[in-house]
């Protein structure tokens, strides 16, 4: 049996290894093929109709001046939207916001999630309660957390202001200062989603091979060596799985930013690519330009995921 770490998270990047011997030509195989088709078709049909069709539609619209409120339809404008995107001043700011938010959330929530999993894997009294508590915010919707955290971050009357005032420190203006607003959104997102990386890492840790732990102990390995040489390699498929799913989720965050800052302050303070797509399409009534940003974003994600698969795949072979 494979280590159970792979049970929950085990993404083997790239093509999965074939289960069992290669297919034979026989009546059984044809029946199996038909069964597979019957099982997959409903899902594939839904994904094609409601994900891939809109994706192609979106690509087509990115070359037009489409406006969702105008009945006249869309006029082709060639690559004008793309040229505009390259030249616009806010492009650089929004790309930077997306980059900062995504990398901070991915790295911090993965490191903290692993640290928490290691801590709560120890035999400590009350760990089950703490495990549930850490997972709790993940269950609440991002919109609700976003609204509720205004009472925590409020620069005049919030919890943080009160705590900082007690130690005599000045509270930064989370609502007006772009940098601090981005800090607020990022921290809230990490606080809310820590439970996800924690639970996946914990499940992987619990499925690890105890005999390797014993071997390391007999060899007199220090805790740090044990972690680096025994635990981390076993967690590698989990780390790969998380790095992809957390990144894709972070890049696509919308509800939290909408509830906390509406993409502000000063216009684009916490606007990320996904938020810009929403803003252009539904607020500025420029769906064509929104589609352009969406297309660029999809291509960026595709590239990053491809690189992740390639880089981590090579490591997995070792």
């Amino acid at each position: 049996m494979q280590p159970a770490a792979e049970v929950v998270t085990g993404v083997r990047s790239g093509p999965p290894p074939p289960v069992g011997p290669p297919p034979r030509r026989s009546g059984t195989d044809r029946r199996e093929w038909l069964l597979a088709a019957a099982l997959l078709l409903p899902n594939l049909a839904l994904l094609t109709l409601f994900v891939y069709r809109p994706l192609i539609d979106n690509f087509r619209l990115s070359f037009t001046d489409y406006n969702i409120s105008s009945p006249n339809g869309a006029t082709p404008v060639g690559a004008a939207n793309y040229v505009e995107w390259l030249g616009r001043e806010d492009t650089r700011i929004i790309l930077r916001n997306t980059l900062v938010f995504t990398f901070a959330t991915v790295i911090i929530s993965m490191v903290l999630g692993l640290a928490l999993a290691l801590l709560l894997d120890q035999k400590l009294r009350g760990r089950n309660v703490v495990r549930s508590l850490v997972f709790a915010p993940f269950v609440v919707s991002g919109a609700a957390i976003g609204v509720a955290f205004q009472f925590v971050f409020d620069p005049s009357f919030g919890l943080i202001r009160d705590l900082l005032a007690r130690v005599g420190a000045q509270t930064p203006d989370f609502f007006q200062d772009s940098g601090w607003a981005l800090f607020m959104v990022t921290t809230t997102y990490i606080w809310k989603n820590l439970g996800y990386t924690f639970v996946i890492y914990l499940a992987a840790l619990q499925g690890r091979r105890i005999d390797l732990d014993e071997a390391a102990e007999i060899d007199g390995a220090s805790p740090w060596t044990h972690f680096r040489k025994v635990l981390l390699p076993q967690l590698r498929p989990t780390t790969f799985f998380l790095s992809i799913t957390v990144l894709l989720n972070s890049v696509q965050v919308f509800d939290l930013i909408y509830a906390q800052t509406r993409g502000g302050p000063v216009g684009t303070g916490t606007t990320t690519l996904v938020f810009q797509v929403y803003q252009e399409t539904f607020v500025n009534m420029r769906a064509g330009y929104g589609a352009t940003v969406a297309t660029i974003m999809f291509l960026i994600l595709l590239t990053i995921t491809f690189v992740q698969v390639r880089v981590m795949d090579r490591g997995l072979g070792a």
Binding site: Y52, V277, A294
Partner: peptide, 12 residues
């Protein structure tokens, strides 16, 4: 399909 955000699919 994980890479396609809802903002892309919602209009169509």
């Amino acid at each position: 399909a994980l890479m396609v955000p809802n903002q892309i699919t919602v209009i169509s």
